[in-house]
């Protein structure tokens, strides 16, 4: 009896499983195929889908997560592709993810790759239009590779010529065989090292000075920061310029006078000429000066006599008293 009951249970489970699967399958078809999490629909646009077919895989981070549901030509340059993805991908795909066409292997089926580019864009909800990126075309890649190969060939040829020139050059050979070269070179390098060390010290000092100047310390800071000084310097310069102009004029006048005097001396005219060359004039001048000296002495004597005069004594005393105070 017990065994028979167990058999009934097993039979019930068996039949029920079959019926559940059947209902599940029919329900899936009836619900427009959304029971397996395919309700996430995304769109993108390409210029050229390059042989993409309905049902081709859609990959996110290299994992197949959906398939191409529709391909529609919008106009002569835009093809709209509708993708159906697993529902769980809502948690991973952001609206700024890039869609690109790729190939499964080198010459395999076309696939759509969705690449996450990070950032804080919101996650997709379904129905969004994702930005697309032009694919890496194999043909273009091969063309570029061909060009690169040609360049490499040319470079190799030129390199060969250069190496040949280096190998056959006597100047270079002498240079390489010169044993003193290394000594000189090391000496030069030593000097260069010292120079650079000095330059470094110099730079340090300059930096320190500039630092001081920036902090408002030292003469340089005064020079750089004192605005009145700049005005004064400007004035001084202006005055120097004026002075220079006057000096030029003065020199010009002196030159003129000298030229006139030279002319007078050469022609025997004028007072200077008479002073320099006329002996009688000189004798007469000397006699005049002697007379003047004599006259001056006599005048001094007269003045002394005048001081003791009754009429003028009082006046002179008043003068002495004022001078003392």
């Amino acid at each position: 009896m017990k065994k028979r009951k167990i058999n009934a249970v097993k039979l019930g489970v068996f039949v029920l499983t079959g019926l559940v699967i059947l209902v599940f399958a029919l329900y899936t078809l009836g619900k427009n195929k959304t029971l397996f999490g395919s309700s996430l629909e995304l769109k993108t646009r390409f210029r050229d889908v390059n042989g993409l077919l309905l049902g081709n895989n859609v990959r996110f981070s290299g994992i197949d997560v959906g398939s191409v549901q529709g391909i529609k030509i919008l106009n002569d340059t835009i093809v709209e592709v509708t993708m159906t993805l697993e529902k769980r991908m809502r948690k991973y795909i952001r609206t700024n993810s890039l869609v690109s066409l790729g190939t499964d292997g080198l010459i395999g089926n076309r696939v759509i790759n969705i690449t996450a580019i990070g950032g804080s864009a919101p996650f997709v909800e379904g129905g969004e239009m994702l930005p697309s990126r032009e694919e890496l075309n194999t043909e273009k890649m091969l063309q570029t590779l061909y060009g690169t190969n040609e360049n490499v060939g040319r470079i190799t040829e030129e390199l060969l010529q250069t190496v040949h020139l280096i190998n056959t050059s006597t100047a270079l050979s002498n240079l390489l065989n010169d044993k003193s070269l290394s000594t000189n070179l090391s000496g030069s390098l030593l000097h260069l090292h010292e120079t650079s060390k000095n330059a470094s010290i110099l730079m340090k000092d300059a930096i320190a000075t500039l630092q001081q100047a920036r902090e408002g310390q030292g003469t340089l800071a005064v020079l750089l920061n004192d605005t009145t000084l700049a005005t004064e310097i400007k004035q001084v310069v202006t005055q120097i310029q004026v002075l220079e102009t006057s000096s030029q004029r003065l020199v010009s006048d002196v030159n003129q006078i000298v030229a006139t005097l030279e002319k007078d001396v050469q022609q025997g005219d004028g007072t200077v000429n008479a002073l320099l060359r006329d002996s009688l004039m000189a004798e007469s001048l000397r006699a005049t000066i002697e007379n003047a000296e004599k006259g001056t002495a006599a005048f001094a004597l007269n003045m002394e006599a005048l001081k003791s005069n009754v009429l003028f004594r009082r006046y002179f005393k008043k003068q002495e008293k004022k001078a003392r105070n």
Partner: peptide, 26 residues
């Protein structure tokens, strides 16, 4: 040969099935 998730496989299967495939066969 390739990596295909379980839901995606069944989605692809059911995408191409219709009632006319299941009911007469049943």
């Amino acid at each position: 040969y390739e990596t295909l998730t379980y839901p995606l496989f069944f989605k692809k299967v059911f995408d191409n099935l219709t009632y006319i495939d299941i009911i007469p066969a049943f």
